[in-house]
């Protein structure tokens, strides 16, 4: 018996050691991103003795990053040149130039607009597939289902030609519209909305609700947790997009991945500045992850459950 408890203790120790090691290895790169962003390049890129603790160069690194002329990483007030004079007030009407979004702002803006637009489109389409009968319903649904197997990020060549044709190159719409009708989103919404009882919709109809009210006032509120999980999937999908933004966006509209690629591909690579950029782009999402962990996890699981 004592032999057994001792083996159990050894086993528990090994398990803890393994998990702890994993946690440390996971945290080291994160720690290093943040710490390197507060140091001078010579302090952390040193084969003899790199400095392992935070320094105080973050601000100067940040200013150097902001001073670069090929990449605007964090936005700043733009030139408000377009005014209308209304009595004593000057009103800027060219809202787009009020603020230069920078790569951070562009990424957040694009990801938020994409997520909202896609949530609306996917939930409407899912509602139609789950709760209505119409001609060609099955073939249409199968067609959408079939594209689930395709890596939709890879269709860049025709999309590029299409965007050139539609005059949408170097526009945020070019990286929002192509995947707004996200097949996975439509599929998940349809699956979940099938659980809405028909009787509920029917009784609302009796009470004189319009079809759109059924969607807006009954279907959407009951789908809150599914929508939250889908929102995470969509947000991260857009947030991580690199290939097509790289192809289609030009200077001034760069999202974070494209901006960082510019920094890395420059003739002289300033690692201190790159680490500031990485810190700024990674840390906010980490904090969001800590707060919304449950939704992240259910998003991952929802994305992994294809019927």
């Amino acid at each position: 018996m004592r032999e057994e408890t001792r083996r159990e203790a050894v086993w528990q120790f090994l398990t803890y050691a393994f998990v702890l090691l994993g946690a440390v290895v996971t945290l080291v790169p994160l720690y290093w991103i943040v710490v390197a962003s507060t140091l001078k390049e010579s302090e952390f890129l040193s084969s003899t003795a790199p400095r392992l603790l935070p320094g105080d160069s973050f601000l100067s690194n940040f200013q150097a990053l902001q001073a670069r002329d090929n990449v605007q990483f964090v936005g700043h007030p733009g030139e408000m040149t377009q005014y209308i004079e209304i009595g004593p007030l000057y009103v800027a009407y060219d809202v787009w130039h009020l603020w230069d979004l920078g790569a951070m702002g562009s990424s957040v803006f694009v990801a938020v607009v994409y997520t909202l637009l896609s949530l609306v489109l996917c939930s409407m389409a899912g509602f139609a597939f789950a709760k209505y009968e119409f001609r060609f319903k099955q073939p249409l649904f199968y067609a959408i289902l079939a594209t689930l197997i395709l890596p939709i990020q890879l269709l860049v060549i025709p999309l590029f030609l299409l965007m050139a044709q539609l005059d949408l190159t170097n526009s945020y719409w070019a990286i929002i519209l192509p995947w707004a009708a996200n097949p996975l989103g439509i599929f998940l919404m349809r699956q979940n909305m099938q659980s809405i009882p028909d009787a509920l919709l029917e009784s609302a109809r009796m009470d004189g609700a319009t079809e759109f009210q059924l969607y807006y006032k009954i279907a959407l509120p009951t789908m809150k947790s599914s929508l939250a999980a889908l929102a995470i999937i969509l947000f991260l999908f857009q947030w991580n997009l690199f290939l097509f933004p790289l192809v289609v966006l030009e200077q001034g509209k760069y999202t974070i991945p494209v901006a960082i690629n510019q920094l890395v591909g420059a003739q002289r690579v300033y690692y201190d500045q790159i680490m500031v950029a990485a810190t700024l782009s990674i840390v906010p999402i980490f904090l969001l992850f800590l707060v919304l962990q449950k939704q992240f996890v259910s998003g991952i699981l929802a994305g992994s459950v294809k019927e």
Binding site: A278, I282, I285, Q293
Partner: peptide
């Protein structure tokens, strides 16, 4: 252990 899930694909590669 799940923290890297939220890291931007390009940003994490820089480190």
């Amino acid at each position: 252990l799940a923290l890297p899930v939220s890291a931007n694909l390009v940003a994490y590669a820089t480190v």
